[in-house]
Design a protein around this nucleic acid. Structure first.
Length: 428
RNA sequence: GCGGCUGUAGUUCAGCGGCAGAACGCCUGACUGUGGCUCAGGAUGUCGUGGGUUCGAUCCCCACCAGCCGCCCCA
């Protein structure tokens, strides 16, 4: 056992039939995104390390301790090795591409979606892996394209509600908040810190630490004893500028009009530094501690932080692994999809003829499993029954007469079918 | 990164300081051109890895690895 290789910790193989579910989810997402006029973007799986440091934030957990980084080989002796990193999220890469390809110069709002693996070196747990998949989308553009409009926020949220519904995920909750502009947030941070100073000693040890290092995190505390204290803390809504307040109010009004249900959560603060104004999460019970199905928000200053033009945007990332978990819990295991036919050659001398027959049927669009002439008929039946809806027997008699023996497993009915009629029969 | 629980057949799990077990699944045959049901037979394996204690360890102890749950954080 010590010699055999295994998938490294936090990574895993996805096998059929589970991959059918993954494909179904991805296909549904692509369909929905297309209706909202999004196009697909594929960015590299690794980027310059500084991209993530500058966007996600040097002090965040992701950047400070969860990235897979390495020094690339120097290209020339005079050059320093470049630090590269497997992407821990995809928004930074999309915005980098937006800047690099001057997508803002196209005038139109850029609406881009992506589906792909991301990498974070966290402790694996249910719904949390070191290589995990995200489906995400970004709406970004110069202010003149309308990228700052609250309508964009509402449209994205409405799209997500639609997508979850179409995926068949029920019982989700949309939690919403506005954390204001970068200046609003800095201001609130100080307000919180001041308010916490006298209270923190009475709180849990985690909160005592957070009160100093990251006051916003205190709001996330789940210790029951701390809740009364937290309830007395100033709310971020009161620290918002008039601008941010009006923007948020407009988002809510649009959601109300579109009848997208949401829950305001003044305590929803997100961990990535680039978020501004609208932040949101769709949560779902039954995911254990990892109850966030997806999260996102606005990032009005991200492009500029990366040296690009002013390009406000809003986006989200959904955890594909978590969607799969949720759907599997709800639907039990879906029955394996069976092939249309299993071809059973009777004798190895009929293998070649069987391959030819299979080729014909497959070219006609049928899903066909091909047996082997060395199997005894009984064994062929056993295999066929598991793999397909019908068995097509190809023996010397059948080859000679041109009439194939077809047995339907559901009905148990067995008939002779002329080769010319076989495709039509198997389609029914 | 921290804490708790777990690791035995393909799978789900019993078990015990002294020859490794069940169920399901798998394979073979009864049935040399007919599956499901039945019956008869068969194979499951370095008991996660490495070390220690012991006459003897799958069992007790330690370390490591992996999984699950929680914390942190996040999708």
């Amino acid at each position: 056992m010590s010699q055999t290789l295994k998938a490294v910790r936090g990574t895993r193989d996805l096998l059929p039939p589970e991959t059918d579910l993954w494909n179904r989810i991805e296909a549904t997402a692509r369909q929905v995104f297309a209706r909202y006029n999004f196009g697909e973007i594929r960015t590299p799986i690794f980027e310059d390390t500084s991209l993530f440091a500058r966007s996600v934030g040097e002090e965040t957990d992701i950047v400070s301790k969860e990235m897979y980084s390495w020094e690339d080989r120097a290209r020339a002796q005079s050059e320093k090795a470049q630090s590269l990193t497997l992407r821990p999220e995809n928004t930074a890469g999309v915005v980098r591409a937006y800047i690099e390809h001057k997508l803002g110069e196209r005038g139109q709002l850029q609406k881009l979606y992506y589906i792909g693996p991301q990498f974070r070196r966290e402790r694996p747990q249910k719904g949390r892996y070191r290589q995990f998949w995200q489906i995400g989308a970004e709406v970004i553009g110069p202010p003149s394209s309308g990228s700052e409009s609250p309508l964009r926020d509402a449209e994205v949220l409405e799209m997500l509600a639609t997508l979850l519904d179409e995926l068949g995920i029920t019982g989700w909750t949309l939690e919403l908040n506005s954390i204001g502009s970068a200046a609003d947030r800095a201001h609130y941070n100080e307000t919180l810190r001041a308010a916490l100073a006298p209270l923190a000693p009475k709180m849990c040890t985690d909160c005592q630490r957070r009160a100093v290092t990251n006051p916003l995190r205190v709001l996330d505390c789940k210790v029951p004893e701390d809740q009364p204290v937290i309830a007395t803390l100033p709310v971020i809504a009161d620290s918002l500028s008039e601008d941010a307040k009006a923007h948020f109010a407009a988002v809510l009004a649009a959601l109300d009009a579109a009848q997208v249900p949401y829950k305001l959560n003044h305590r929803l603060v997100r961990g990535l530094d680039y978020y501004t104004r609208t932040t949101f999460e769709f949560t779902h019970g039954g995911l254990g501690a990892q109850n966030a199905l997806l999260g996102g928000g606005r990032y009005d200053g991200l492009s500029e932080a990366l040296g690009g033009p002013k390009a406000p945007g809003i986006g989200f990332a959904m955890g594909l692994d978590r969607l799969v978990l949720t759907l599997q819990a709800a639907a039990q295991s879906s029955p394996l999809e069976k092939a249309d036919a299993y071809i059973a050659p009777l004798g190895e001398n009929l293998n070649a003829a069987a391959l030819t027959l299979a080729r014909e049927l497959r070219r006609a669009g049928l899903r066909v499993e091909l047996g082997d002439g060395s199997f005894r008929l009984k064994k062929s039946f056993e295999f066929a029954e598991r793999a397909a809806r019908r068995i097509v027997i190809l023996g010397d008699d059948e080859l000679e007469s041109g009439n194939l023996t077809v047995k339907d497993f559901a009905s148990g009915v067995q008939t002779k079918v002329p080769r010319k009629e076989l495709v039509a029969r198997l389609r029914s």
